[in-house]
Simulated assay, not measured.
Amino acid sequence: MFNCYKCITCTRKKQDVESSGNSGASKLLGEGGFGRVYSVPGGGSNNTLYAVKVAEPQNPQQLERLEMEILIHGSLQHDRIVRMLDWVETQIGQFYICLEYCEVGSLYSYAEQLTQEKRHMDSQQIRFIFRQLVEGCEYLHERCIIHRDLKPQNILLTSSLDVKITDFGLAIIKPGQGAVWASVWGVLDTFRPRCCWSPGTRQQQTSGPWAAYCSGCTLGSSPFRKEISKAGIIEEKSAASPLFGRRL
């Protein structure tokens, strides 16, 4: 049976292990703006692994963002979404969010590994992954949830290459069809061209379809050249889309 407090105890031990320089059964999977994600055993007879996100918001804005992430992610139940199993806030303001563990890791790291091994996915595998990604986006959009940070790093894979969307730190619940966002979030490489319109002229757009295209079709590589600057990427997107507005 899953035990959130067991995961928290193992995570704390892992943090102590890291500071002492020794090795442990758990390991650091990744880190973001104000948190880290660890793989930890959850107890039980088979000692199943779980992913535990340890977040320490440093200001009210980060706390509000984290609370929104927990609210949204905790409400989702779908095969294409990483399951949130439980969460706990400690007395010192640390948040432990216990999540489903995906053995392969992110789509980005998987594509990088294939590149290093000079291998590639065939068209059937690509269609399999892309179809599941679209299923996950459809589920979110039916519930008026916009991910806003859909990229290969936030698409996890199980051992059978089943897609699991994760990291809802920038997600929002769409207030209505006529809404206009005051800001645009995400990674420039996966921005839909319309999302780069300058303030005052930018219409409300969701980046889901464009990000899905970048993630599924390119398998971790930006469709725009990596060596050019931010202004260069915007210029290329401007040439690629007649709907693109003024340069930033």
Rank of each mutant, 00 (worst) to 15 (best):
L76N: 00
I81F: 06
P223F: 01
D86T: 08
F130A: 15
N47D: 13
G178P: 01
R12D: 12
K151S: 04
D162I: 02
P41Q: 03
L99H: 01
F168K: 07
L71C: 06
F95W: 13
D122N: 12
E89G: 10
P41E: 07
E64D: 10
F224V: 12
K27W: 11
Q177K: 14
H141W: 02
I228A: 10
I92T: 15
D16P: 00
V37F: 03
Q62F: 00
Q132P: 12
S221F: 11
R36F: 06
L63M: 15
L219T: 02
R246M: 07
Q177E: 08
S207C: 14
Y139E: 13
N3Y: 14
G208Y: 04
C214H: 08
L63Y: 07
E142C: 14
V184N: 08
L49V: 04
H141V: 01
S198T: 08
I92N: 11
Y110F: 15
A212P: 02
R65Y: 00
Q116Y: 04
R119S: 14
T158L: 10
P199E: 12
S75H: 09
V17T: 14
L161M: 11
F244N: 10
Q153R: 07
E18D: 13
T90C: 13
I129R: 06
K237T: 05
R247N: 08
Y5E: 06
L85A: 03
R12Q: 15
T11G: 05
K53T: 09
R12W: 09
W210T: 03
G93E: 04
M1N: 09
L29A: 10
A179S: 13
Q61T: 15
V52P: 02
D16M: 01
R143F: 05
S106L: 06
A240Y: 05
G74D: 07
Q153C: 09
V52G: 03
L243I: 03
Y38A: 07
A240C: 13
Y5I: 10
R194I: 03
L243R: 07
N154P: 03
